[in-house]
Amino acid sequence: MSSLRDRMSKGFAISLSDEDEAQAAAMKPSTPTTGPGQTMTIAALRKQIADLKEQLDAKGGGDIQAAEAKIHALEEQLAKASTLDLALDRLREVSGRRRYMEPAKYHELRENLRHNKLVHPIVVRARGDGDYDIVSGHHRVDAYRELGRETIRAVLEDGTEDQADDGAFFANLMQSDLTDYEKYVGLKRFQRKHPELNQKEVAERVGISQPHVSALLSYERLPDQVRAILEKQMALIGATAAAELAAVAEGGKADRVVEAVQRLSEKKLDQAQAVRFAKEVEKPKVTKPVATTFKVKDGKSTWCDVRRARNVMRLEFQSEAIAEGVQEAIRRHLESLMADSKQ
C-alpha cells in the first residue's frame, strides 16, 4: 500500500465520507491511567489508523491534507498512549536480554535517577497474564527498585517475543560500551533462533563484518573454565584476544590458557601478557644443585672449609699462608689424577 505522500505526489485526490468524518472524530479516547486500559487503547488506535489508511487508499478525490492530518493526529495519540506508568512488581525479566554494566557505572546511573527525572522510558512487551516483559531498561528498573520507587515510565512495544528478543539484541549491539563477550552471548542466541542463516548471513543481519562475527564466536571455542570466569567478568577479554587464546587451546594447551586467564582475572597479568603467557612454551623447571660441604678441623678451629656444587669446588683455608702452601700440593695431585684417568 502506497503512502499518502506518494499518492499526493502522483496527483491523486482522496475524500472522506460523512461516515469517515464521524469515525475520525470519535478517535480521540481519553488516555486511561491503568496498564490494561492503555493496552486496549493502543490496540484500538492501531486498528483505527490501519482501517483509515485502508479506506483512504481505496478511495479517490477529496482533501488529501485533511485526511493526512487526521491520521497524523491519531499517530500522536498512539505515541502518547504507548507510554505507560507501570508498577515495578508487574515487570518480568526474560533471560538473555539483560546486558552487563560495570558496578561503578550502575552506581552513577542509580544516583542520577535518585535526583533526576527518567529521560528514557524502559521498553516492555505485554504478557498474556497482564504483566510485562522487560525488553530493555533492566538497570533502570533495578535502580528504581533500590530507590524505593513503585512505578516507572515504559513504552509498550508491539510484536512477537522473537521480535522483542531480536530488537533488544540489535539495540544493545549498537552500544559502544557493550562488551565483546555480551555480543557473543547475543549472537549465539540469535543463531539458535535462526539456524537457517550461515555466518555471512548473520553478519549481514546484525550489521557487522563477517571477520568480527567470527572473532566474537571464538569465545565458544575457549575452555569451559575460561567461559565460567568470563560470565563473572565479561569485560576481561576482547574478541581478538579470545580468538588467539582459542587457537592456543585447540593446539593442545588448554590448561595453559586457563592459567593465563586466571592470572588475568587476578590482575597478575594484563590482556596482552596473558596471551603471550599462553603461547609461551613451558620450560622445564631447573632443579637447583644441592651443595655438599665438609670441614677439615685443627682442634676446635677450621683449618679448611670445602664446598662443592656439581662441578665447582671452593676451598677456604684458615689463612692465606696455608692456602699458598697447599696450592702447589693440590696442583701436583690434580695432575696425578688426570694422568691416572687417561690410563
Rank of each mutant, 00 (worst) to 15 (best):
L337E: 14
R308Y: 06
V123E: 12
K59T: 12
G325E: 07
K53F: 02
N198D: 14
T34K: 01
Q191K: 14
S9P: 00
D20S: 09
V226G: 04
V141P: 01
M174L: 13
R189I: 11
A254E: 12
T240M: 05
D224C: 03
T160R: 05
S136C: 05
E75A: 10
Q175W: 01
D131F: 10
T31A: 13
Y219V: 08
A154G: 04
S214C: 04
G61H: 09
G11C: 11
K28M: 11
D85M: 13
K232D: 11
M234A: 14
P121C: 07
V141Y: 03
D85I: 05
N172C: 03
S176E: 07
E244H: 08
I71G: 04
D133E: 14
R276C: 00
F169S: 11
W303P: 00
R276H: 09
E220H: 10
A79M: 09
D180H: 11
Q38H: 03
A22L: 14
D270W: 12
Q225P: 04
V213H: 04
V155I: 15
G35C: 03
Q343W: 04
R263Y: 03
A321P: 00
L245T: 04
A164F: 03
T293F: 07
R97F: 09
I134P: 00
N112V: 13
D89S: 13
P195F: 09
L236N: 05
R127L: 12
G35T: 02
S82M: 05
T292E: 14
V94A: 09
L74G: 03
